[in-house]
């Protein structure tokens, strides 16, 4: 039977393991994700991996709203996991996708999400090779949650762990901060405002690969998602027992992000990104790395934003544009919940 993808809604049957589920998989998931592994219709995917070290990461996506300027939960769930794998220096190979769907969720919206997810996976060259669908009763979930897991291969000689970070290392970022969080905020129901700002959601693995080709000795990389640049750097400062100093004047902040932050009393340093990475680089190689980043489409606005130091162990501070200094505190929680 044909599922009504235009007007139909998710029913409990779609997660029951019966014919309804098989039809949904065939007519929606397989149609968009189509590849040799999914066509086997197994509960698993079997594939060859190159010899060496593998990196693996998992991420559950609960973003609200599901559709936002510059992306949606589908593309985000692909980019998020690709980026988590890529931060190890790995080349992402395969993804899995698990869907938790609320009863009554429109099939048209589900198809829109899956289509976007499939496009993101295709563009990144990382196929979704296995998946799972669960349906929960109405009221037991907020529309749709997606979990993705990814694995990738770490090239020989690449080692990107916080323990490698040394005093004197420079801290780089591949562009503006806070775009994703503010784009989501602009769509929240109690706070809608018009902006042409888009989420920066994008897969960073090709940028990572270009950076490592230029400077294999990059010490460590992280994507500053929830809690923004401030949370990521504080976490690393704590783990390494080193201090980190940022230069406010080097931070790239779009006028829209700055304007909204001014109005609502938010600090872009704490706002989530979904297409940004922080890289720690030996000072002698920083110019080379910066040039490599800037020559990649996802790093055109890259800049050196700070430095690692032995002093002020475990803390992040900021030299303000104004000539003063302040602490960049590690906050207890992200100022904006359900951002990814």
């Amino acid at each position: 039977m044909k599922q009504d993808l235009q007007h139909g809604v998710i029913e409990m049957a779609h997660g029951s393991g019966g014919r309804a589920m098989a039809e949904l998989i065939d007519q929606l998931f397989l149609k968009h994700f189509d590849n040799q592994w999914l066509r086997q219709k197994q509960d698993h995917a079997v594939f060859q991996v190159p010899a060496g070290r593998l990196a693996m990461s998992t991420d559950s996506h609960v973003v609200s709203p599901l559709f936002f300027p510059g992306g949606d939960i589908g593309a985000l769930s692909v980019h998020g996991t690709i980026n988590d794998v890529a931060m190890s220096g790995a080349r992402p190979l395969y993804l899995s996708a698990g869907f938790v769907i609320e009863e009554g969720f429109p099939l048209a919206d589900l198809e829109r999400v899956v289509r976007s997810m499939a496009r993101a996976s295709r563009e990144a060259g990382v196929p979704v090779v296995t998946g799972d669908t669960k349906v929960v009763e109405k009221g037991n979930a907020d529309g749709l949650y997606i979990n993705t897991t990814g694995i990738g291969m770490v090239p020989d000689g690449i080692d990107m762990e916080p323990r490698n970070i040394q005093p004197g290392d420079r801290i780089l970022i591949n562009g503006s901060i806070g775009d994703h969080g503010i784009a989501i905020l602009s769509q929240r129901e109690n706070l809608t405002f018009d902006t042409d700002l888009q989420s920066d959601s994008q897969p960073l693995h090709t940028l990572v690969s270009a950076m490592l080709k230029s400077v294999p000795g990059i010490r460590c990389m992280r994507d500053p998602t929830r809690g923004g640049v401030a949370a990521t750097l504080n976490e690393l400062a704590q783990q390494t027992g080193l201090g980190m100093v940022l230069e406010e004047s080097s931070l790239v902040i779009s006028p829209a992000v700055q304007a909204v932050s001014e109005l609502l009393g938010l600090d872009p340093l704490y706002i989530a990104n979904e297409g940004k990475l922080l890289a720690f680089c030996p000072s002698g190689e920083v110019d080379k790395l910066l040039a490599a980043m800037r020559s990649h489409p996802m790093g055109q606005n890259a800049s050196i934003i700070g430095e690692v130091q032995a002093e002020n162990a475990g803390m992040v501070s900021l030299n303000t544009c104004f000539g003063g200094q302040r602490l960049v505190d590690w906050r207890y929680s992200d100022p904006l919940p359900r951002i990814c």
Binding site: G265, G314, M315, R326
Partner: peptide, 27 residues
């Protein structure tokens, strides 16, 4: 409040606090 003197001190200035007390665990 972010306008309160203690919160402003804590957030932007509290260098005298040992790094440990910032950790999520201790909080």
């Amino acid at each position: 409040s972010s306008e309160g003197a203690c919160a402003a001190y804590y957030t932007y200035r509290s260098r005298a606090i040992p790094a440990k007390s910032f950790s999520v665990n201790s909080l």
